[in-house]
């Protein structure tokens, strides 16, 4: 895949990239599976067409390009660029391609949005399975704080947006 393997900074970028390729492949396959189950549950939901398959391939490719860019940026001397998250690179790559050609918007649109989310949360649930003891040990106070943290952010964001929208007359 990649010729340059620097064992000093990271274990092996080529190896990491290969794993990313595989896991991304798994992710789009799971998305297809979920979209199929959605169709069983509700035949009126987003159908699986050729465009869906092309769309999934496109999502896989854009994600992989984002991973590649993110890995390359880690080698730049600028901390601000190094710190920019992989998730952000992927969205930017996709945005740029989608602005260049509406074809990408069309095929990606054939992939059901919510079908992309279910497996992510399944992974999230599994990933915390061994931390439940810690969760149970948390004081009730942290739960109260969490509610205020979530509400505080969402409310402040919305309030500022609302005021700004009113000022801009939209």
């Amino acid at each position: 895949m990649q010729a340059k393997s620097q064992s000093t900074v990271q274990p092996s970028p080529a190896h990491d990239f290969l794993i990313a390729t595989g896991v991304l492949g798994l992710s789009v396959c799971l998305t297809l599976f979920v979209q199929a189950v959605k169709l069983i549950r509700n035949p009126a939901s987003t159908p699986i067409t050729t465009n869906t398959l092309i769309g999934l391939g496109t999502l896989w490719l854009f994600s992989l390009i984002g991973v590649g860019i993110s890995m390359l940026m880690k080698k730049t001397p600028w901390k601000i660029v190094q710190d920019f998250p992989m998730l952000g690179w992927v969205s930017i790559v996709s945005l740029v391609f989608c602005l260049i050609s509406p074809f990408f918007v069309k095929v990606i649109g054939a992939v059901d949005f919510l079908s992309l989310t279910t497996s992510v949360l399944a992974f999230a649930g599994i990933s915390v399975a061994h931390d439940l003891g810690a969760l149970r040990k948390l004081s009730w106070k942290i739960f109260v704080v969490a509610i205020f943290v979530y509400f505080g952010m969402y409310f402040m964001d919305t309030l500022i947006s609302q005021l700004a929208l009113m000022v801009s007359g939209k």
């Binding site: 990313a20 896991v23 991304l24 798994l26 992710s27 789009v28 799971l30 998305t31 999934l56 496109t58 999502l59 896989w60 854009f62 994600s63 984002g66 991973v67 992989m86 998730l87 952000g88 992927v90 969205s91 930017i92 790559v93 996709s94 945005l95 740029v96 391609f97 989608c98 990408f104 918007v105 990606i108 649109g109 992939v111 949005f113 992309l116 989310t117 497996s119 992510v120 992974f123």
Partner: peptide
């Protein structure tokens, strides 16, 4: 995080 990436790519569209 990798499972999540296709969702991030979807945002672009």
């Amino acid at each position: 995080i990798f499972i999540m990436l296709p969702l991030m790519a979807r945002y672009g569209a």
